[in-house]
């Protein structure tokens, strides 16, 4: 397996990235850590004319945080975010989800924004972005816009990013007082893609559950604070509303059952973590 031919450009400035994307559009691919793009190139599922390497731009390699949000630049590797000492305190859901992303040997190179850009339906970071009301910062030349995770993920490996736009960063709200979070995932082997993954964010009066691996993109549902049979009924309705698929790993019925059981367990764990 060898990639088809492409030009390679190591960008020294953001303007250079924007100019290349404006010139090549869909024929250009932005290369960050390369942990999902490289297999796609080697299997020739992607055949760009130009690869733009953005890993030598210091302005993209920053994690910035204020009282409200954490902003993670496009050059920040997953292992760097996981090793950030403030992560667990500022956003515990990210700290619980990140160890499920690939393996230590791929997190050392793969970026947070790269995983968001790839938008695999079973990937952990898009799921966490959706559960946490994260947003994606896109830029094309001087034009900038911010898209919520809800609007960004549009289907199987497809997003609202325009062909000339660069994902410069993602922003994730800091944990709010009085809320609890939890993350759980079921797969056959460590490091496999999730058959189902769940992320819960709860407060005294409401529950958000987001699930990945079930349909062609991560999905979320917001409930009032329910318990017992009422919560089971709400999870059952959510499971049936998802467009669950059969594949060689699991049937749609099995995935729905995982949403009901793991969904409930995840919500209960998040309630125990309210602080």
């Amino acid at each position: 397996m060898k990639p088809a031919r492409f030009d390679y450009q190591r960008a020294d400035t953001l303007a250079e990235v924007h100019a290349a994307l404006a010139e090549y559009g869909n024929d250009a691919r932005v290369m960050a850590g390369g942990q999902t793009l490289m297999p796609m190139l080697s299997m020739r599922l992607a055949r760009p004319k130009l690869l733009v390497d953005i890993m030598h731009l210091p302005e993209l390699a920053r994690i910035e945080a204020d009282a409200k949000v954490i902003r993670i630049g496009a050059g920040v590797r997953q292992a760097e975010l996981l090793a950030w000492p403030e992560l667990a305190q500022r956003q515990p859901l990210l700290a619980s989800a990140l160890p499920w992303v690939g393996h230590a040997q791929t997190r050392s190179r793969g970026t947070v924004c790269g995983s968001v850009a790839h938008a695999d339906p079973s990937a952990e970071l898009p799921l966490a972005m959706l559960a946490l009301d994260g947003s994606i910062e896109l830029s094309a030349g001087r034009k900038r816009r911010s898209v919520t995770a809800q609007d960004f993920f549009t289907g199987m490996m497809s997003t609202a990013r325009g062909h000339d736009e660069l994902i410069e960063a993602v922003s994730i709200p800091t944990r709010r007082a009085g809320t609890g979070t939890a993350f759980a995932e079921f797969g056959r082997r460590h490091g496999d893609f999730a058959i189902v993954a769940c992320a819960a964010v709860v407060a005294a009066d409401r529950v958000t559950l987001a699930v990945g691996g079930v349909g062609d993109k991560p999905e979320r549902r917001d409930f009032p604070a329910l318990d017992g049979g009422a919560l089971d009924d709400a999870l059952n309705a959510f499971a049936w509303d998802l467009d669950a698929r059969d594949d060689l790993h699991a049937t749609a019925a099995y995935r729905r059952e995982l949403v009901r059981r793991m969904g409930r367990d995840t919500i209960e764990e998040a309630r125990r973590c309210i602080a």
């Binding site: 390679y8 190591r10 490289m38 297999p39 080697s42 040997q105 791929t106 050392s108 190179r109």
Partner: peptide, 29 residues
Amino acid sequence: CEHGVCGACTIEIDGVPARACLTLAVQAD
């Protein structure tokens, strides 16, 4: 495997473990 799954090609790049098959030679310059 040449797609990052098996780990046989793992090396160290700038102090961290990395799959050599998921890296281009030109990236390593």
